[in-house]
Amino acid sequence: MRLVVRTFSELCLTIGTLIVLFVVYVLYWTGVQAESASAGQIDSLQREWVNTPVAAPPPSGTSSAPSSTAPSAPAPEARPYTPGKGIAVMYVPRLGKDWKWPVLEGTGPDVLKQGLGHYAATARLGATGNFAVAGHRRTYGDPFKDFPRLRPGDAVVLTDGTTWFTYRIDRGPYRTVPGDVGVVAPVPKPLKKNAAGFTGPGRYLTLTTCEPEWGSSHRLVVWGHLDATQPVTDGRPQALNR
Rank of each mutant, 00 (worst) to 15 (best):
L3G: 09
S9V: 13
C12H: 02
C12S: 06
T14D: 02
L21M: 07
F22D: 10
V26G: 11
G31A: 03
A34F: 02
S44I: 00
E48N: 11
V50M: 09
V50R: 10
N51M: 09
T62N: 11
T62R: 06
S63I: 08
S67M: 07
P71F: 04
P74N: 04
P74C: 07
P74K: 06
A75Y: 04
E77C: 04
A78Q: 10
P80A: 10
T82P: 01
K85N: 11
I87F: 01
M90P: 08
M90L: 14
R94V: 07
L95Q: 10
G96S: 03
K97F: 06
K97S: 15
D98G: 05
D98P: 00
K100N: 14
V103A: 06
L104C: 08
E105K: 06
K113Y: 01
Q114T: 12
Q114I: 02
G115N: 08
A121N: 09
R124S: 15
A127S: 15
A127N: 10
G129L: 02
N130C: 11
N130K: 09
F131G: 14
F131D: 14
G135P: 12
G135V: 03
G135H: 05
R137N: 14
R138D: 14
R138T: 15
T139G: 05
Y140A: 12
Y140S: 15
G141R: 00
K145S: 13
P148R: 01
R151T: 14
D154A: 05
V156A: 07
L158V: 04
G161C: 01
R171F: 08
Y174W: 06
G179E: 12
V181D: 15
V183A: 14
V184A: 11
K189D: 13
K193Q: 14
A196W: 02
G197H: 03
G200H: 04
E211P: 06
E211W: 02
G215K: 01
G215C: 11
G215R: 00
S217K: 07
R219W: 01
V222D: 09
H225R: 05
P231G: 05
T233R: 04
R236C: 07
Q238K: 09
N241G: 02
